[in-house]
Amino acid sequence: MKSGKAAPPAVVLEMALLSSDRVGARKILKDSCSMDEPYQCISDVVEPALRSIGVKWADGEASLSQVYVSGRICEEFIRSLPVPSSGIRPDQPVIGIGVLEDYHTLGKETVMTALHASGYRVIDYGAGLTVSDLLEKIKDDGIEVIFISALMLRAALKVRELTASLKEAGLSVRVIVGGAPFLFDEHLWEEVDADAFAHDAAEAVSLVGGASS
């Protein structure tokens, strides 16, 4: 760089992650993170890097495998920190995640990894869930935020049944959806009455407690 000014750690990390440079990424994280303040490291370095990679994927400038591997590398680092990964976020909501109807779990795994990499504890309900399965689990576990991944349009449209059932049961649960059908049709999340749609895993993290997409 002509100015001689070093690039921010998040930018350097992003480059290492996009190259699947596990060793380099780990070194950047180690060098730029204080073990005493893991959450600071997550919010200042990990989340911006993952978010930028997610945006690149949505824009066609990165691939899904890069999103997946980046999340995995960051998750491994967070897990190596001297605090339990479930305890980094003190006031987190009760979060669940699952795949409706089918067994394509990559989207779920990628979001779950990004959530772990951001210090959230997540209850994984797995794949092949029916709406009634998921509704029961949400009730039993007192879920406050549910992430739903869907690959097929049919499964995506089933979210509407879930949101209607949640309303009928008087449950206040934030429903965040993601997956190919929502990516191709940016109004689909509204059609199924979800609270938000995440284009990518890092955006999913940013939606845990916040605004709609």
């Binding site: 109807e101 089918d102 067994y103 092949g128 097929m152 349009l153 049919r154 499964a155």
Partner: peptide, 12 residues
């Protein structure tokens, strides 16, 4: 896995 309103899907 067969559905009444969508494409058959691969199971586990």
């Amino acid at each position: 896995i067969f559905f009444d309103d969508g494409p058959p899907n691969a199971g586990a």
